[in-house]
């Protein structure tokens, strides 16, 4: 059985108001255990909505999300744990407390949370920073703490919403290579949203391309090269071909969205 299935999922915001917005439309998707799936698509295409629905933060308007066959109605961090784009660390808690906070919220004892926090901080390479406060850390280090917080729950699936979105190119690359080791060792399935074509290909067992709003799955591409991959993978022909293909796809969807917006606003006038 698949780890997570998204079945004919539709999500609308503001149902029955004049601002009703169709964010995701009839999406079918499955995630297998240990698989790394990246989601890419134009801005505002409903990627985040899809991810949040997969983790139970948003309820489906129609269709269903199932984890191990059981419908997801609210977040269960021991199944699927989130890593958010803006790190979302608590500035009033130390790095160690932050890393253990997810477990505390999930109901673990303080002692268990603290010992897991230590283990996970060491795992992401921040052993000596437990006493510090998040403000003293760089963006890349803060995101490692957020990853440690999620890994502390030993979830079967990590849901990452543009985890490197706020980082500069060099930091992204360093964190990226480190993370492929970390996630490779931890063995979780990962669903990661990204805006970067390179990241989408480099990481993925499978790339999900979404169309512009309303979000639909336009294409799924399997990347056969085994993980973890070396940086040299980015210089191969297969990588370059995929990159060109994704680039064109995103262009098409972006243009579609722009045209539709233009015609709909013309209709209003």
């Amino acid at each position: 059985m698949s780890l997570l299935t998204v079945d004919n999922l539709t999500v609308k915001y503001g149902v029955d108001t004049k601002d009703e917005l169709l964010a995701c439309h009839e999406i079918d998707l499955t995630i297998e255990g240990g698989e790394f799936v990246t989601i890419i698509g134009p801005s505002g295409c409903g990627k985040s909505t899809l991810l949040h629905t997969m983790g139970g933060l948003i309820s489906p308007t129609d269709g269903a999300v199932r984890f191990d066959g059981v419908p997801v109605t609210k977040p269960n961090p021991r199944n699927a744990a989130f890593v958010f784009q803006d790190y979302s660390l608590f500035p009033w808690k130390s790095v160690e407390e932050n890393a253990g906070m997810g477990l505390r919220f999930a109901g673990a004892s303080k002692a268990e949370a603290m010992s897991q926090a230590k283990t996970q901080l060491e795992f992401v390479g921040l052993k000596d920073f437990g006493e510090r406060y998040p403000r003293a850390l760089s963006g890349g280090m803060q995101q490692r703490v957020a990853i440690a917080r999620a890994l502390a729950l030993e979830p079967k699936l990590l849901l990452m919403d543009e985890p490197f979105g706020a980082l500069d190119e060099q930091t992204r690359r360093n964190l990226g290579t480190d993370l492929s080791r970390i996630l490779g060792e931890a063995g979780q399935a990962v669903v990661m949203i990204t805006h970067s074509l390179d990241e989408a290909i480099f990481w993925a067992d499978r790339i999900v391309v979404m169309s512009a709003r309303p979000g639909r799955i336009a294409e799924e591409i399997t990347v056969e090269t085994p993980r973890p991959r070396q940086l040299e993978f980015m210089t191969t022909k297969r990588f370059q071909d995929l990159r060109v293909h994704l680039f064109e796809q995103l262009e098409v969807h972006q243009r579609d969205a722009a045209e539709r917006d233009a015609s709909s606003s013309a209709a209003v006038v």
Partner: peptide, 8 residues
């Protein structure tokens, strides 16, 4: 949102 995501 962190609280919700981790079941606080």
């Amino acid at each position: 949102q962190v609280g919700r995501a981790f079941g606080a």
